[in-house]
Design a protein around this nucleic acid. Structure first.
Lengths: 143, 143
DNA sequence: TGTTTGATGTTATAACATAACAAAATCAAT
DNA sequence: ATTGATTTTGTTATGTTATAACATCAAACA
């Protein structure tokens, strides 16, 4: 990820006045922001132990991930059970993005067209809880 | 699922001249066709043991599910790790559907708008392997 | 008939996730 | 400050989803 994008994201977080509950939350979010690649919970455990010299238990990581999802700071990627930082001021009931099947880089895309489509399909009467469009392929860098 | 829809599906399968490799494949596909509800692998194991008085091992079920996916007879639903029979003559690299979070009923939707959208986003250059739009909500029956 | 090949059976284990309870920190009311 | 309630964090155990690895059996065929 470009540095500017990273900084824009951080400044968004500042604007939103989001506060991390604890150091784990902060550290894990920072790990997910780096490179904008999606990581699994167990990759995070591994990486955390290397970077911060501390072994986290799965439960601890999953608790943090849950909180970060609730705070709309990360998305879960269903394709490979991974998690990625969110860079949009989006409504978080919707995810639209491209996922590289080689490097797990995520490219989030605008949600508007999908919301329109859902409406057009008449599904908006169905008390939609969330909408998830995952497009899997290989990014230009990996090709 | 309506009986006519079920029959149309079965006649499609006949037309496609699909043959099941073994009795498990046939039985499991028939279980997935009933009601057009998505079932997990372990629900299938449970149900299979009740209906057919035979205990399948996970490995056996997953092998069957893999084959059925390859034959384009079923889709995997990422939302809840479940599998559902497919009723369309679709291209199976794309799934577009509504999933009821109460009863797991699946309502497949046309793919064309999503394919257009992918193109519009410029993602079609990325060697797309598959595209998955899952809209989660509560169906009219459950509401 | 013996050998190869593919399908099926079986065991073990990997990968992902949460329940349940313990311990400690926070905080409000006295 | 002390007590008791509440929330947060730590820990153990377990549940859920999925696959690797190898054994066995059966069909095909030289």
């Amino acid at each position: 990820m470009s540095n500017t994008k990273h900084q824009k994201c951080l400044s968004n977080i500042k604007k939103k006045k989001i506060e991390f509950s604890n150091i784990y939350e902060k550290n894990i979010f920072n790990m997910l922001i780096k490179g904008h690649k999606a990581l699994t919970a167990y990759q995070l455990i591994e990486s955390y132990s290397q970077v911060h010299k501390q072994l986290l238990k799965p439960m601890q990581v999953y608790r943090v991930l849950k909180k970060l999802v609730e705070k709309n700071l990360i998305h879960r990627i269903n394709f490979n059970n991974s998690y990625v930082a969110c860079f949009h001021e989006n409504n978080h009931e919707t995810f639209v993005g491209f996922i590289c099947n080689k490097c797990s880089t995520i490219e989030e895309k605008p949600q508007a067209p999908i919301k329109e489509l859902t409406k057009k399909m008449g599904l908006d009467k169905n008390n939609i809880s969330h909408t998830n469009l995952e497009i899997i392929g290989t990014c230009q860098k990996c090709l």
